[in-house]
């Protein structure tokens, strides 16, 4: 200390100038993946996780919250399935949760916290949190897609032939029928159905994900519908 104190102001200026042109002591986070200092960020494997909440208790920064994501069978009884959800802004990336997990369900993936934060927006929305209502919708669309597939394959393999025009006329039993279906046309019906479905989707989304963006979307759709209705009325 004494030595330092004895140094003149010029030495300090020289030192600062020297450090200005030298390499920084800290490492850029984006280039640090290869260096083994980094432990990576934790990601849970929902299939292995049993929901024991050990990771939640061991987390030093309270960054883990156990969330119910569905049901599973334990000894014949149906119980809620819980998995840890990481708050990557609170996380200090120490890797304790991965060490403490008895089933090796949490894995430290090589990467910087920046990747984890980028990643954290995608994970809850698409892969892990499947609400039971969302599950039902997805199951329905899987069924529908399968039926479409069966229909498409059968149309591909079915026999095709050339017919006269009479073959394409509907069966009317010898009577006269002009087959105009325009008389059942209701003006504005398609637009109404489209907007109605938009509103349905918005309501459904706001029920599942109660976030501000979804609410804003819901209000926007309602406004569009009201404006269109008013335009219709003025005409």
């Amino acid at each position: 200390m004494r030595l330092r104190n004895r140094k003149s102001k010029i030495d300090v200026v020289l030192y600062s100038l020297k450090s200005m042109f030298s390499k920084p002591a800290t490492i850029d986070l984006r280039n640090s993946v290869e260096i083994s200092v980094l432990r990576g960020y934790p990601v849970v494997n929902p299939d292995k996780c049993t929901g024991c909440s050990l990771c939640e208790r061991s987390c030093p920064s309270n960054a883990i919250e156990m969330k119910v994501v569905g049901k599973r069978v334990v000894g014949g009884r149906e119980v809620d399935k819980k998995i840890p959800i990481f708050d990557y802004y609170k996380c200090i990336y120490c890797g304790l949760c991965a060490e403490v997990c008895p089933f090796k369900a949490i894995e430290m993936i090589k990467g910087t916290p920046l990747d984890a934060i980028k990643f954290s927006h995608l994970v809850p929305a698409f892969s892990i949190i499947l609400d039971i209502r969302l599950k039902a919708v997805i199951a329905y669309f899987i069924i529908l897609a399968t039926l479409f597939l069966i229909y498409g394959i059968s149309r591909f393999f079915s026999f095709k032939a050339r017919h006269s025009q009479a073959a394409y006329e509907p069966f009317v039993g010898g009577g006269y029928y002009n087959g105009r279906w325009e008389k059942y046309y209701i003006p504005g019906l398609l637009k109404f159905i489209f907007l109605f479905m938009l509103i349905e989707i918005a309501v459904f989304a706001s029920l599942i994900y109660e976030t501000r963006e979804i609410l804003a979307l819901f209000i926007l759709v309602l406004l569009i519908m009201i404006v269109l209705e008013l335009r219709e009325m003025r005409q």
Binding site: F157, S158, F159, P170
Partner: peptide, 13 residues
Amino acid sequence: LLLKEEIVPVTSD
């Protein structure tokens, strides 16, 4: 029936 030809009448939607 799946392998038969499907004829859609001209007047139909």
